[in-house]
Design a protein around this nucleic acid. Structure first.
Length: 272
DNA sequence: ATGCAGGCGGGCT
DNA sequence: AGCCCGCCTGCA
């Protein structure tokens, strides 16, 4: 099915923006995303050559699944064009947003984000992807598609009782993962209920989980609960703040879109 | 081969 | 409240 895209959209940049660890290019120009049990393969059908943005998108799902799952997953109710156009008096960010134009903030599954970002501490992105993939292969549901065999992200009960997680390269994070999965499995942490919390309450609730600090909590707020005002500060962003903003945090100024601005800066800092 | 990676918890002040 | 240290392992 072909979808007309009217807002910023670039598959490569989304897949490589560091917010997701299981989106890959399975074939030349064909990207796969997975959320819960849903899988989509997408390919650019028409690209605007002047800015690399996709204007027509070829997707593997039908209209029903697109509308129910993926339209929302890719955040098509938000105008990233408008958000970029709101930037002024900030040369560095204008530049970064131009470079990262096409990135969108995905709405990913909360449990997967909780576990994935606990894993992310002191790890490189390739190493994170390796660990997450091993967990899925060991404990996820197996699915065959025309391109590949892949595995879903396991649920909390399964991970809480997993006996072979020590083969997943988790290191000292292993106990954090088991603990977080147990909190969710037992109901101490109700990830669905957190959708009703405001940003601050959500952040504080997530930080109660052992292994979740400021940075990881903000990543979960932003990438699972779509709290686009939350700006996670990792080493790259701290470097940008030091080198481009004289050590003064620029994010309060961007208020409700700070998280999206952070994503442009992160992508530019890391890929340029 | 060896330093470092999208931090965090715990102990100290 | 803020600073510092050790930490598992895989990737470059």
């Amino acid at each position: 099915m072909i979808i007309n895209i009217k807002d910023d959209f670039n598959l490569y940049k989304i897949a490589n923006s560091g917010q997701c660890f299981r989106a890959i290019e399975v074939n030349d120009g064909i990207y796969r995303f997975i959320t819960n049990d849903n899988i989509i393969y997408m390919k650019a059908h028409e690209v605007n050559p002047s800015n690399d943005l996709i204007t027509k998108l070829d997707v593997s799902v039908d209209e029903g699944e697109w509308n129910d799952i993926w339209y929302n997953y890719f955040d098509f109710d938000t105008s990233y064009i408008d958000i970029r156009n709101s930037i002024k008096d900030d040369e560095y960010l204008l530049n970064a947003a131009g470079f990262g134009k096409g990135i969108r903030i995905l709405k990913q599954a909360p449990f997967e984000m909780l576990i994935s970002f606990i894993i992310s501490q002191r790890k490189s992105i390739p190493a994170i992807m390796t660990s997450v993939e091993r967990i899925c292969k060991l404990y996820g549901k197996r699915i065959n598609t025309k391109y590949e065999t892949l595995y879903t992200f396991p649920d909390a009960d399964t991970l809480a009782n997993a006996k072979e997680l020590d083969t997943c390269g988790l290191g000292y994070r292993l106990s954090y993962i088991i603990g977080a999965a147990s909190d969710v499995a037992s109901g101490i942490l109700d990830l669905d209920k957190l959708f009703t919390y405001n940003d601050e309450e959500l952040f504080n609730e997530l930080k109660k989980v052992k292994g979740v600090g400021d940075k990881v909590a903000n990543c979960i707020c932003l990438f699972a609960y779509h709290r686009v005002a939350r700006a996670p500060k990792d080493v790259w962003i701290n470097r940008v703040i030091e080198e481009e903003y004289a050590g003064i945090d620029p994010f309060p100024k961007y208020d409700k879109y700070a998280g999206i601005m952070q994503q442009y800066m992160f992508y530019a800092a890391k890929n340029r």
